[in-house]
C-alpha cells in the first residue's frame, strides 16, 4: 500500500505543516470556525503555500464497503487542485468530504481528518451547514433551482442572513462568473431558459455568492460541449485569484490545462474490495511529464482507464 503522504515532494512537507500550525491554535468549535475564516483579501494572494484544506489519512466507508483508503492531500490557497483517475477511484467521494456532503448519505462513514484553516470539519461540534457556506460546491450536471436567474444567485445569501445590497451582490457574483453580460436583461426569467453552459456558470455564480473561500467542482464540464467547457476553464483561472479550487475531472487534458497541482487516484486491486487510493500528488507539470509512479504514467499515457 502506497502512503500518499510520502509521495508529496519533500520540500512542500514542512511548509504545509507550518501553515497548518500557524492558522490553527488548537480550536475546534463552530464559533471559532467563523473567526478563522478571514476574507481572501486580508491574506497575501502570493502566499500560495498556505494550506486551506488539509486532508489527512482520510478513510471513507459506505456501509461495509471501504470506498477510499488513507488519503492525505493538502489543498493550497489560490490554486487549482485537480483530482483525476478512473471511474470508481473515489475522487468524488474525497471531494464530498471537503464540505461534508457525504453526511447526506446515511451509510457513509468518514475517518481521518479534513482540516479547514486548522479546524477539523469532522469535529463533533462543527455544523455542516456552516461548513458548506464556506466551502462551496458546483455539481456535475448544472442544477439551477426552478426559480429566476436572480433568485438562484440570491438563494445562498438570503438563507445565510445577508444584510447588504442583494442586487449588488447578485451582479457581482454573476460578473465574476462571466455571465452578467449575457443575463443582465433577463434576471427575472427562469434559469431553465439558459443554455447548459450558462446554467453551469449560473451555478458557479450561485456558489460564489455566499463568499466561500474554497470551491469544489465535481466534473463541472462533463455535461457541457467543448465551447462551454472552454469558457468554464477560463473562468476557473480567473476565479483562483480569489478562491481555492478543487476540481474532479475525467478529462486529463482539462486537468493539465487548468490545474496547478494534480492528485492521481486509482482503484486498488490488491485489496479484497475496489477501494480508491491516492497514488501520486504533485505539481501538474510533474504528474504529466515525469510521474514517479508507474501506475500514474500508465494512466496518463492512456494505457488504462
Amino acid at each position: 500500500m502506497t502512503n500518499a503522504g510520502d509521495l508529496r515532494p519533500p520540500s512542500t512537507l514542512p511548509l504545509d505543516r507550518q501553515a497548518t500550525v500557524q492558522s490553527s491554535p488548537k480550536v475546534s468549535t463552530a464559533d471559532t470556525l467563523a473567526t478563522v475564516n478571514a476574507p481572501a483579501s486580508s491574506i497575501s494572494p502570493s502566499n500560495t503555500d498556505e494550506v486551506v484544506l488539509d486532508i489527512t489519512d482520510l478513510n471513507v466507508y459506505y456501509g461495509d464497503f471501504h470506498a477510499v483508503a488513507d488519503v492525505s492531500l493538502p489543498i493550497r490557497r489560490n490554486q487549482i487542485t485537480a483530482l483525476i483517475g478512473p471511474s470508481g477511484c473515489g475522487k468524488s467521494t474525497v471531494l464530498r468530504c471537503c464540505n461534508r456532503m457525504n453526511d447526506l448519505i446515511e451509510i457513509a462513514r468518514v475517518e481521518g481528518s479534513v482540516k479547514y484553516h486548522g479546524v477539523d470539519l469532522y469535529d463533533q461540534d462543527v455544523d455542516p451547514v456552516e461548513v458548506r457556506r464556506r466551502v462551496g460546491m458546483v455539481f456535475q450536471k448544472p442544477n439551477p433551482f426552478p426559480k429566476s436567474i436572480y433568485e438562484n444567485v440570491a438563494f445562498g445569501p438570503k438563507i445565510g442572513g445577508f444584510s447588504g445590497n442583494l442586487d449588488d451582490l447578485v451582479q457581482e457574483s454573476l460578473t465574476k462568473a462571466a455571465l452578467w453580460d449575457e443575463v443582465k436583461n433577463k434576471l427575472s426569467e427562469s434559469a431553465f431558459a439558459l443554455s447548459g453552459g450558462q446554467q453551469q456558470r449560473l451555478c458557479i455564480a450561485r456558489a460564489i455568492a455566499t463568499s466561500p473561500d474554497v470551491l469544489l467542482m465535481d466534473e463541472p464540464c462533463s455535461a457541457l460541449d467543448p465551447v462551454a467547457t472552454f469558457r468554464i476553464e477560463e473562468l476557473m483561472r480567473d476565479l483562483k485569484e480569489e478562491y481555492s479550487i478543487v476540481i474532479v475531472t475525467h478529462n486529463m487534458q482539462q486537468a493539465a490545462r487548468v490545474s496547478d497541482r494534480t492528485a492521481f487516484f486509482t482503484v486498488d486491486t490488491d485489496r479484497s474490495q475496489r477501494t480508491g487510493v491516492l497514488v501520486e500528488f504533485d505539481d501538474t507539470g510533474t504528474i504529466f511529464t515525469k510521474p514517479t509512479e508507474q501506475r500514474t504514467e500508465d494512466y496518463i499515457t492512456g494505457r488504462f482507464g
Binding site: 462551496g136 433551482f145 438563507i159 455566499t210
Partner: peptide
C-alpha cells in the same frame, strides 16, 4: 444537493 451545498 444544490441547496445543501449552499449551506441550507
Amino acid at each position: 444537493e444544490a441547496a445543501f451545498g449552499l449551506g441550507a
